[in-house]
Amino acid sequence: MPGPAFLVLLGPDYAGKSTVMRELAAGEPTWRLLSVDDEFLAPEHGVLSRLKSDLMADTLPAMGKHHSPDFVASLLQTAVVHLRDQVMDCGSHQPVVVDSYYYKILAKCRLVGATAHPVFDWWRGFPQPRRVLFLDVGPAAAWRRCGRGARANPLEHHGDRLDRESFTEFQDDLRATMLAEVAHLPVDVLPPADPPATVRRVREAVAREFA
């Protein structure tokens, strides 16, 4: 039996993936769009919203003090398994686009020092997409988009202190780590562009894969 057919939308922080997903949701009602953003979660999956809220408000600020990186990875695994379950529920003909899948979470866990390698190997055994669409953005543009750090969280910079240098270094490392994780797959790197142009390129890529 062939596995599920899907594409993954990937990219560094503040690359514009959420904007693209919202535009696709509004303009492509027959597509299936999978994400752990609240607006894409069904009411029966509200536990993910609650866990994410607790993670951002309580757990991440205490990482390295009261919670280990492995503990953070354990919480993030709920999002990974949810996306895996949703992918497995998809057919082979309906266009399916997944926001980041496990690739970005795995990369971030590695960068903050999580050592749960058996778990990472399990994730890597999940169904693989036909293609990855990598929305590229430079750290300078990402820094501006996050309000020069005002909206950044501890999974978006190195160390305890957030500044432009720690953010830039993390984003450079994140980009390289994600691209290494998907090196075995067909990857289209989409250069920075205005949202309508990016959405158009994503639509074109999905149309080719599901023609």
Score class of each variant (00 low, 15 high):
34 L>M: 13
34 L>D: 12
35 S>I: 11
35 S>E: 06
37 D>S: 09
38 D>H: 01
39 E>N: 04
40 F>T: 09
41 L>H: 10
42 A>C: 04
44 E>H: 15
45 H>S: 11
45 H>N: 12
45 H>A: 12
45 H>Y: 08
46 G>Y: 13
47 V>E: 11
48 L>Q: 12
48 L>Y: 13
49 S>C: 13
51 L>Y: 07
54 D>W: 15
55 L>M: 15
56 M>H: 15
57 A>W: 09
59 T>F: 00
59 T>A: 04
60 L>D: 00
62 A>R: 15
64 G>R: 01
64 G>W: 00
65 K>Y: 00
65 K>Q: 00
66 H>D: 03
66 H>Y: 06
68 S>H: 01
70 D>Q: 12
70 D>S: 12
71 F>M: 08
71 F>S: 09
73 A>G: 11
76 L>C: 15
76 L>W: 15
76 L>Q: 15
77 Q>H: 11
77 Q>N: 13
81 V>K: 03
82 H>W: 06
83 L>G: 14
83 L>Y: 08
83 L>W: 07
84 R>Y: 12
85 D>L: 03
85 D>M: 04
86 Q>T: 09
87 V>W: 10
87 V>N: 07
88 M>D: 14
89 D>Y: 01
91 G>W: 01
93 H>V: 11
95 P>T: 12
97 V>D: 07
101 Y>S: 08
103 Y>W: 06
104 K>W: 03
107 A>H: 07
108 K>P: 06
108 K>D: 10
108 K>R: 15
110 R>M: 05
113 G>C: 04
114 A>Q: 10
115 T>V: 01
115 T>L: 02
116 A>T: 05
116 A>Q: 05
116 A>D: 02
117 H>W: 00
118 P>Q: 08
118 P>I: 07
119 V>L: 11
119 V>N: 04
120 F>Q: 08
121 D>Q: 08
121 D>S: 07
128 Q>A: 06
129 P>M: 03
129 P>E: 06
131 R>F: 00
131 R>Q: 04
133 L>I: 06
134 F>M: 03
135 L>A: 02
136 D>F: 01
139 P>N: 06
140 A>C: 08
141 A>K: 04
142 A>S: 08
143 W>H: 03
145 R>V: 08
145 R>Y: 07
146 C>A: 07
150 A>E: 14
151 R>M: 05
152 A>P: 14
157 H>K: 13
